[in-house]
Write a protein that binds this DNA or RNA. Structure first.
Lengths: 147, 147
DNA sequence: CAAACCGCAACTAGTTTGGTTGCAATTTGC
DNA sequence: GCAAATTGCAACCAAACTAGTTGCGGTTTG
């Protein structure tokens, strides 16, 4: 698995905050759902707060909530907030300028890789937290039906 | 930078093999262009050979060449040959089944992430080694012009 | 004032990455 | 037939990154 799982954790947390947006959730509650650890969750929520996607309040009864409506937060927003650097990594160091291919390939590859990354990001940008919350509610409702 | 730079190295090597497809290149020649190391290059070319993109011959005058025409090899082919596993990584371990979000998010996220990865791969699949070789030749020709 | 929170730094174990070393096997020119 | 030029492959290595943990200080509130 390529990148870190921070995006998955961030989207999971945002979906919880969207699902229970009438109250605030603690990092411990979110960590319980992730079978993880409150500190880890706070690290990621911290990045989301830096990106103005969530708000935190300190002290007793503190916790986390969405900074905007769930339909105004896309999976790309979450991804961009927690994942640093390009997805496809470039040459470890610049190639040789002596070689006809070496001295041109970096710029050519940059265009291709950036376009490919943008295609992925565009797809992530088409789904919002509201979509995921709705799908969770739909599945849970169907399960609750008698038959 | 997220993934490894193996894709960049693989595409660089394939472009060299396409540029000089009348002869075979040694791992040392390719390593020189990458300012890297023949063993590292052979490791990556080995994966490309496993994917039937290149051929190697042993012994004196041995080396590497393309197994198909440059226009029949896409950047996605190179990417798929050397990069293992998904680009966007999933939950580090399954979330809690106790939580309404936890027990549904994995499947929902899987769909989103797979679609996003496919969008990226589709974009990589639209450029071939022949395209890159042609662009290298075009740039070099322009540079050679008097004015 | 104590309990329930967040914030943050330091630390750990495990994995991955890019790179290196050493050596065996293969082919070929002389 | 032998030496040189190659690939093939395993064993390392240091640095970086990942997920997770511990410890502690600061803030809010019942």
């Amino acid at each position: 698995m390529g990148l870190s799982s921070r995006s998955a954790v961030a989207i999971h947390a945002l979906t919880m905050l969207g699902r229970w947006k009438e109250r605030s959730l603690t990092s411990a509650e979110i960590a319980a759902s992730l079978e993880s650890n409150p500190v880890l969750v706070r690290r990621i929520l911290g990045s989301l707060r830096d990106a103005d996607l969530v708000l935190s309040t300190e002290g007793r009864n503190g916790g986390w909530s969405l900074a905007r409506a769930p339909r105004e937060i896309t999976l790309y927003d979450a991804f961009a907030a927690v994942e640093a650097g390009p997805v496809l990594s470039r040459h470890p160091h610049p190639p040789s300028g002596e070689c006809e291919v070496g001295r041109n390939i970096q710029a050519l590859l940059e265009v291709e890789f950036r376009d490919a990354e943008r295609a992925m990001e565009a797809r992530l940008g088409r789904t919002t937290i509201a979509h995921l919350v709705q799908r969770v509610l739909d599945i849970e409702r169907d399960l609750a039906l008698p038959r």
